[in-house]
């Protein structure tokens, strides 16, 4: 019922662990698959190891999470071992996420990660929390998107999905640029910029001052982005952003998504959230007489 083919890669169900939640080690990704995820995305890897920002890096409320982890990761050389180890224990599709400070470095890291058994290569060009170090995210610039995709395409045979930012007002147009540059898929969206100030402490709570908003508050923003992108491109979409329930996941598919990323929902409903969403999707599909996800993909555009 939920079986999904994405770029000809079979997924048991369309739910994938979004990058940055859990996903630091092979074991944590295997644990997520054991809890019902159809696939997983590794926490983004870079050329060199990074310790990330000082704490607090994550806070959460009933409506949203706010994070500025600062792209901590063990570096691509160490990360390759974790990716291989994941595949030794699991047949679930693996999305390798990378980021870099220049298009050339993206190509270097892409070449390295392509030696690992990943199924899809995700390019994170949209982290909103590292601008003091990296400058404005590449996800706001058509030129940067074009250059990065061309350089990465030249060094890898893996299908590429580019992760875009909801902070860009013209995300659908940028998705079209990515498609024309040769991207195989779009991941939409990263977190939206935000901050919190503690009144008693009289300062921002996140050590980085600002961060990315995720969780239920991001969902309607992400849904609109996915809806607009689906209308603009023909390549498939990994829809990520605040998906917490089976109803959310089906709404994303009706907006045009093929895969659905789940991240902050782990906070709201535990690691078992993947299996819970699967059951909810099946129940709604049964009630509504929906036999397959292909039947409803993009259906909201017909109205």
């Amino acid at each position: 019922m939920l079986h999904t083919s994405f770029l000809s890669i079979p997924f048991h169900n369309p739910l994938v662990l979004a990058s940055g939640i859990l996903g630091v080690s092979a074991a944590s990704m295997n644990h997520v698959v054991d809890n019902g995820a159809g696939g997983v995305t590794v926490k983004s890897l870079s050329k060199e190891p990074r310790t990330g920002h000082a704490n607090p890096t994550m806070i959460a409320s009933d409506t949203h999470m706010l994070n500025a982890v600062g792209l901590s990761n063990p570096g691509i050389d160490h990360g390759l071992g974790e990716l291989r180890m994941f595949k030794q224990r699991s047949t679930a599709p693996l999305i390798g996420s990378i980021f870099a400070s220049t298009p050339e470095e993206f190509a270097d890291v892409a070449k390295k990660i392509s030696t690992a058994p990943i199924d899809i290569l995700e390019l994170d060009i949209s982290c909103p929390n590292v601008s003091t170090e990296f400058g404005e995210p590449f996800a706001y610039s058509p030129h940067a998107i074009l250059t990065i995709i061309k350089k990465v395409k030249a060094v890898t045979d893996k299908p590429i999905s580019i992760k875009l930012s909801p902070n860009a007002w013209n995300i659908a147009a940028l998705a079209r640029v990515a498609e024309q540059a040769g991207a195989d898929a779009i991941t939409a969206v990263n977190t939206v910029s935000g901050m919190q100030i503690n009144v008693q402490a009289r300062m921002p709570v996140l050590h980085n001052k600002y961060g990315g908003v995720s969780g239920p508050a991001l969902f309607p923003i992400a849904l609109k982005c996915v809806y607009d992108i689906y209308a603009a491109v023909n390549i498939p979409i990994i829809a990520t952003g605040g998906v917490t329930t089976g109803e959310d996941a089906l709404a994303m598919i009706m907006a045009g998504a093929t895969l659905v990323g789940v991240g902050s929902a782990v906070y709201y409903r535990g690691t078992g959230v993947f299996q819970k969403i699967v059951v909810e999707m099946q129940q709604i599909m049964q009630d509504e007489g929906i036999a397959s996800l292909d039947e409803i993909r993009g259906v909201a555009h017909a109205s």
Partner: peptide
């Protein structure tokens, strides 16, 4: 990093 089962650092 977080203390509430999200960051994955302590797995």
């Amino acid at each position: 990093k977080c203390g509430f089962n999200i960051c994955g650092q302590c797995c």
